[in-house]
């Protein structure tokens, strides 16, 4: 159920748009302020708090040993999961993951997996393989969670340190972290919303509520597109899609500056 205030704010967004304007006089293809805080947690092997505008996503990575998949005995396993925390937005509630939450995790995962951000081949420890468990928690939803979460996860992975493996104990020594995991590719996503036929980059939650759907384009280093997700009931023409691709490729250069390897 949509709250009545959402509808009023959505109407305001559409009114502004009729005059070719956007809240805060932002351009149609510009981002809000991006901020990144890496390694803010001690126990997680990698962590990052990323925000775009007022949206906040906290990503944490835990490293574990696990049984390999039968068809990939020599390969480590990467898992990406999302939590839409009840404190992040009035319509989120505790319970099993919603379709929105699953879609968000899978879209973030898709680009990172496709671009081979981490080399998972040969990550074998004894009879086990390395499991990289990435969980990102949405703390505050002000729209464009996909791009915010991708930045959070990319930063957490870029600063991921692997604990020392003790072969005798067949376990990790968690305190001894000396090896940074190599990041082989950098991925960013750019998400556009369609509102009354107009296409806007990086929408806040009011704009998202006013819109009828979104298009996420994932871009990897070297001029490659690595993921796409059209979501919501809006349709896009091919030209609109390719225009979004062109903007996303340009924005990749801007966004990768926010993926930092610290210390």
């Amino acid at each position: 159920m949509k709250m009545i205030m959402d509808e009023i704010r959505a109407e305001y967004v559409k009114e502004l748009l009729k005059e070719g304007k956007r809240k805060g006089d932002r351009g149609f293809d510009s981002y809000r302020e991006v901020s990144i805080k890496n390694n803010i947690l001690k126990n997680a092997e990698g962590s990052c708090l990323a925000s775009i505008g007022k949206s906040k996503v906290l990503a944490g990575v835990k490293i574990d040993l696990m049984e390999p998949f039968s068809d990939r005995p020599e390969e480590g396993v990467l898992m990406v999961n999302s939590e839409l925390m009840p404190l992040a937005y009035y319509s989120y509630s505790a319970g099993p993951p919603t379709p929105e939450s699953i879609e968000l995790a899978r879209v973030v995962d898709r680009g990172i997996r496709a671009a081979n951000v981490l080399e998972m081949q040969g990550l074998k420890f004894g009879d086990k393989v390395l499991g990289v468990f990435v969980d990102f928690y949405v703390l505050d939803n002000d729209g464009n969670l996909t791009d915010t979460a991708t930045l959070a996860v990319m930063n957490a992975l870029s600063n991921l340190s692997i604990p020392e493996f003790n072969a005798e104990l067949n376990a990790f020594e968690r305190e001894k972290r000396n090896r940074k995991m190599e990041v082989k590719n950098r991925v960013t996503t750019s998400t556009f919303c369609k509102i009354n036929g107009k296409i806007l980059l990086d929408c806040d939650v009011e704009e998202e509520n006013a819109g009828s759907g979104s298009l996420t384009i994932g871009v990897a280093d070297g001029g490659f597109i690595c993921s796409t997700q059209k979501s919501g009931s809006a349709s896009f023409s091919k030209k609109e899609v390719m225009d979004c691709v062109d903007i996303a490729m340009k924005k990749h250069e801007e966004l990768v500056r926010h993926i930092k390897i610290e210390g």
Partner: peptide, 15 residues
């Protein structure tokens, strides 16, 4: 009207 209703993608593709 040839509008795109479903579009997903993964992999590495040039423009």
């Amino acid at each position: 009207n040839s509008e795109i209703l479903l579009l997903q993608m993964d992999g590495l593709l040039t423009r």
